[in-house]
C-alpha cells in the first residue's frame, strides 16, 4: 500500500512538473510504463501491429500538447479514455465499421472509479445482503458469479464446468456483477 501511494504521488508530481516545464523526459517517464497496455489496447481496436505501433507514438505526440493544457487527476483512467478514443477515431477515419462491443465497455468505464468502494465496503460488510441479491439473478449469471467470485474459478474452468462458451461466461459475469451491484445499492438505500 505504501508503495502504491508513493507511486501515485510521483505520477501526480510528474504531471504537475510536466505541465509547467514541458520537459519531454518527464512525459516519457509518465508514459513509458503504460506503453504495453496502450499497445495491447491499440491491437484490440486497430488489429494491425504496424498501425498499433504508430498509434502508440501518435498518442504520445498528442499528449505533449494536451497535458500542458488539461488538469488530469487520475492519469491512468484519463489515458485509457484518451487512447481508446484515439483508436476509435482512427477506425472511423479508415472507414471500417465499428461493431466492436462498445456497450460491453461503457458500463465498465463507470466502475473504474467506483470499484474500490464495491470491493472493500460491499464485499466485507454486506455479505448477507449479497446472498439475498444473488438469489435474484438468473440461473446462468448466478452460477457463473458464484464460480468466479466464491470458488475463484477462471473463465476456462467455468466453461468446462458449465459447458457455456467463453464469451457467454464473460458476459454472464459482467452483467451479473452489474445487476448484483444495483440490487445491493437498492437494499442499502431501503
Amino acid at each position: 500500500m505504501v508503495f502504491k501511494r508513493t507511486y501515485r504521488q510521483s505520477e501526480a508530481d510528474l504531471l504537475i512538473q510536466y505541465k509547467s516545464t514541458g520537459d519531454l523526459n518527464l512525459l516519457g517517464t509518465l508514459y513509458e510504463p503504460y506503453m504495453p497496455l496502450i499497445y495491447g489496447l491499440c491491437l484490440r481496436y486497430l488489429k494491425e501491429e504496424s498501425k498499433s505501433e504508430d498509434a502508440v507514438m501518435q498518442i504520445f505526440e498528442q499528449l505533449i500538447k494536451k497535458l500542458r493544457i488539461h488538469e488530469v487527476s487520475n492519469f491512468k483512467s484519463w489515458l485509457y479514455s484518451f487512447a481508446r478514443n484515439y483508436c476509435l477515431m482512427e477506425l472511423r477515419a479508415s472507414g471500417k465499421n465499428i461493431t466492436i462491443s462498445i456497450d460491453e465497455n461503457t458500463f465498465m468505464e463507470n466502475e473504474l472509479t467506483e470499484h474500490q468502494s464495491f470491493e472493500h465496503d460491499m464485499l466485507e460488510t454486506k455479505l448477507s445482503s449479497m446472498e439475498k441479491c444473488l438469489e435474484h439473478l438468473n440461473n446462468e449469471q448466478k452460477k457463473c458469479i458464484k464460480l468466479f467470485y466464491l470458488d475463484q474459478k477462471c473463465y476456462k474452468d467455468i466453461c468446462e464446468i458449465t459447458g457455456y462458451d467463453i464469451s457467454k461466461v464473460k458476459s454472464y459475469i459482467q452483467n451479473g456483477k452489474r445487476n448484483l451491484k444495483i440490487c445491493m445499492e437498492k437494499n442499502g438505500d431501503g
Binding site: 506503453m35 495491447g40 489515458l79
Partner: peptide
C-alpha cells in the same frame, strides 16, 4: 473486470500475442 484498460490490452494481445521485441522497439522510438 475492474480495469477496462487491462481488459482491452488482454483482448488485444489475445489475437496477436505478446511480442517483447515490438515493445522494446516502441520504447526505443519513444
Amino acid at each position: 473486470l475492474e480495469d477496462p484498460f487491462l481488459n482491452d490490452a488482454i483482448e488485444g494481445y489475445a489475437v496477436k500475442g505478446v511480442s517483447h521485441t515490438k515493445l522494446t522497439l516502441l520504447q526505443q522510438r519513444l
